[in-house]
Amino acid sequence: MKKKLYKAKSVNEAIKKGLKDMDIDRNQAEINIIEQGNKGFLGLIGKKKAEIEIIVEDDPVTKGKDFLENLFSKTNIDVDIEVKEAETNQEQVVYDLHSPDLGIVIGRRGETLDALQYLTSLVVNKNTEQYYRIIIDAEGYRDRREKTLERLAHKLAQKAVKKGRKVVLEPMPPHERRIIHITLKKDSRVKSYSEGEEPFRKVMIETID
């Protein structure tokens, strides 16, 4: 967030001056009028300059990147943060992390990556009206994990059908459970649902009789 004060003869002039100086448009800024200003009597007595304050919020992409860079600078882990411009838009910001310590950055079943993603989302969406979805990937880990989960879903559905009983999966975070559910929607032999409390919530696969 950037904050600056400007003075001029009138409020309008002060705003114009400020926007030009900060190189932004009117709709990007929050403007507070501190002093209306007064032309004074005959332009002499009681003359006062108008004063305004311009506040500009950092854009979400920069906010998230700054936070992650700041965070990793306090660790011994070397991380390069790439903004995935093609997938970033008005609703979401996507980062891809590169590091020689990729395993640590991702964590067991992506737990560290999920934690980083959640914290960054809190930081980016703090004090903002619009909500931005934050996605943090690490050298394509999320895609690879999705494929793995799809394969796992098919394999366990097969097992449920073959053995004719319920199959219980290991606890998984919500977005991973979702991948299992979506995959099995296409399999008419089984149904899937989740049971238990976070973070131990598990997917169950059952045959449809």
Binding site: K74, T75, G107, T112, D114, L119
Partner: peptide, 20 residues
């Protein structure tokens, strides 16, 4: 809620500790 933020902070701290 249900310690979710604290859990996320701990995960990141743990990752950094693992490296060290």
């Amino acid at each position: 809620k249900q310690g979710r933020i604290a859990r996320a902070i701990r995960k990141v701290v743990k990752a950094s500790a693992t490296k060290e």
